[in-house]
């Protein structure tokens, strides 16, 4: 138990940690590409109104041929025009604005509400757990799209008079509610395992209150599991938003293009004739979801709780 004995091996330990850190600092090629793509799409969505791109509502009707065929690339329109003469680059960037806002908003909502409910269910167990789990089960029993549709209909109906909620907010809320049970169940399951750990009992023995144990001791351990599902959900929400538009309850394409309603609209009208119109938003969604997952993995690897083995 000599102190000297305890310190000497730590020199080796220090070297080991340094190697690990250096390894973890690097993003790697895929990580860098993901980060660059997300920065690009995020910034351009954020700054869309000030970018030197035409308004998405601006129709270059004169450039569209009589048969509805628009040139794939024309000077000044890098990604071409759609059948209505709208600039595809502008559509995609403004679409990102709407889609990402809804997707992140909805997933954040799901994380916060689902996280809180799941944490409470897993921590308090018993009646609280039974109540919350039943709630989750009820929501999960309804097909997601139908649930989202009815929620949108309900929310837009009730906010029609007041005008309190914009369509984006309504979508955010509706899809957020749909995303809550899966995230909540992950939080609950993870909380159940973590609250069995002895450090939770140790915290209680120290006199920590429930609130502290839940949010300081358990939540940081539960978050990684939730994050991995949340990142996947972003992609699902983008697509769901498009599905709702297609059914006529989402964000209207003529009001505001979004990736979702672009995919929905072009898939219906232009898939055979102008497949690139569909592929542009699809590729944008694909790259974004891929990048999010990729970065998510890297972040998780960095923050993952490492534990010694004896």
């Amino acid at each position: 138990m000599s102190v000297s004995g305890a310190i000497a091996p730590n020199i080796q330990l220090g070297a080991k940690i340094k190697v690990e850190k250096e390894k973890r600092k690097r993003l790697g090629i895929t990580g860098t590409i993901s980060a660059v793509w997300l920065a690009l799409i995020g910034l351009s969505a954020l700054l869309a109104p000030w970018l030197p791109i035409p308004s998405p509502k601006q129709a270059y009707i004169d450039l569209v041929q009589p048969d509805g065929n628009a040139p794939f690339s024309t000077s000044g329109h890098v990604l071409g025009l759609d059948g209505g003469g709208h600039d595809m680059l502008a559509q995609t960037i403004h679409g990102a604005r709407v889609s990402l806002q809804i997707a992140f908003g909805a997933v954040m909502f799901g994380m916060v509400v689902g996280g809180f409910l799941g944490l409470s269910a897993g921590f308090f167990k018993g009646k609280v757990d039974r109540f919350i789990s039943t709630l989750f089960d009820i929501f999960l029993a309804v097909p997601a799209l139908i649930l989202a549709m009815s929620l949108v209909a309900f929310l837009s109906g009730s906010s029609a008079q007041s005008g309190f909620l914009s369509i984006e907010r309504i979508m955010m809320l509706a899809l957020g509610i749909v995303a809550t049970p899966p995230l909540g169940r992950i939080a609950r399951a993870s909380t159940l395992t973590w609250s069995e750990r002895e450090f939770v009992m140790a915290a209680r023995a120290q006199g920590a209150k429930n609130f502290k144990i839940m949010f300081i001791e358990i939540l940081p351990n539960v978050l990684p599991a939730m994050m991995s599902i949340a990142l996947l959900s972003v992609g699902v929400v983008v697509v769901a938003e498009g599905g709702l538009s297609l059914l006529g309850v989402g964000v209207n394409f003529t009001d505001k293009p979004s990736w979702g309603n672009m995919i929905a609209l072009y898939a219906q009208t232009d898939l055979q004739l102008h497949p690139w119109l569909v592929f542009t938003p699809i590729i944008a969604v694909f790259l974004t979801v891929l990048s999010l997952n990729n970065l998510g993995d890297i972040i998780r690897a960095r923050f993952d709780a490492k534990e010694t083995t004896l």
């Binding site: 000599s2 000297s4 004995g5 091996p9 080796q12 070297a15 080991k16």
Partner: peptide
């Protein structure tokens, strides 16, 4: 009679006898 310290790191084992440090 405890043995002080810990077993060596097997990536960089001691040059001589591996128990020598303890």
């Amino acid at each position: 009679d405890a043995i002080g310290g810990r077993p060596p790191d097997l990536v960089h084992p001691p040059t001589g006898c591996r128990f020598a440090p303890r």
